[in-house]
Amino acid sequence: MSRSTVRQLGAVRGCLLGLMLGDAVGATAGAVPPSGTLPATSAGQLACFTVDGIIRASVRGTLRGICHPPSVVRHAYTRWAVMQGIPGVQRWQDEDWPDGWLAQVPVLAVRRGSAPATVAALQRLGMGAPDNPAGTSTGAHGLTRSLPAGLVESWSAGVGDLAAQIAATTHATEAVHAAALGATIIAHLLRGAGIDAAVTHAQQQCASHLPGAAALPLAPAHSDPLGAAALPLASALAAARSAPAQRDELARLAPDARALSALAGAIYVVSSFPEPARIREALLFAASAGDGGHVATAAGAFLGAAYGVDALPVDWLSRLELVWVADTLARDLVSEFVDHPAGSGYGTAPDPQWIIRYPGW
Results as ranks from 00 to 15, higher is better:
Ala164Phe: 02
Ala140Arg: 03
Ala47Pro: 11
Ile66Val: 15
Leu303Arg: 14
Arg7Asn: 12
Ala117Lys: 08
Ala228Asn: 11
Ala198Lys: 09
Ser114Asn: 11
Leu231Lys: 12
Ser242Lys: 06
Ile54Leu: 15
Gly265Val: 09
Ala286Leu: 02
Ala120Arg: 14
Pro70Tyr: 00
Ala31Tyr: 08
Arg258Thr: 15
Leu102Thr: 02
Ile186Val: 11
Thr78Gly: 08
Ala262Cys: 08
Pro350Ile: 00
Leu143Gly: 05
Ser208Asp: 09
Arg56Phe: 02
Arg56Asn: 01
Gly182Asn: 05
Thr169Glu: 06
Gly345Leu: 13
Val334Gly: 12
Gly212Lys: 03
Gln353Val: 03
Arg145Phe: 00
Leu210Tyr: 04
Thr184Leu: 01
Val12Tyr: 03
Ser156Ile: 11
Gly158Ser: 07
Asn132Val: 00
Gly265Thr: 09
Gly293Arg: 09
Gly100Cys: 04
Val314Glu: 14
Gln90Trp: 02
Asp94Gln: 10
Ala47Ile: 09
Leu151Cys: 07
Val295Phe: 07
Ala103Thr: 09
His75Glu: 09
Val270Trp: 12
Cys67Arg: 00
Ala215His: 13
Gln204Gly: 14
Ala40Arg: 05
Val25Met: 03
His209Met: 00
Arg7Pro: 00
Pro255Arg: 07
Ala47Leu: 09
Ala228Asp: 06
Thr173Gln: 06
Thr200Ala: 15
Leu147Ser: 09
Arg241Trp: 02
Leu322Gly: 04
Ala245Leu: 07
Ala43Arg: 07
Ala251Asn: 10
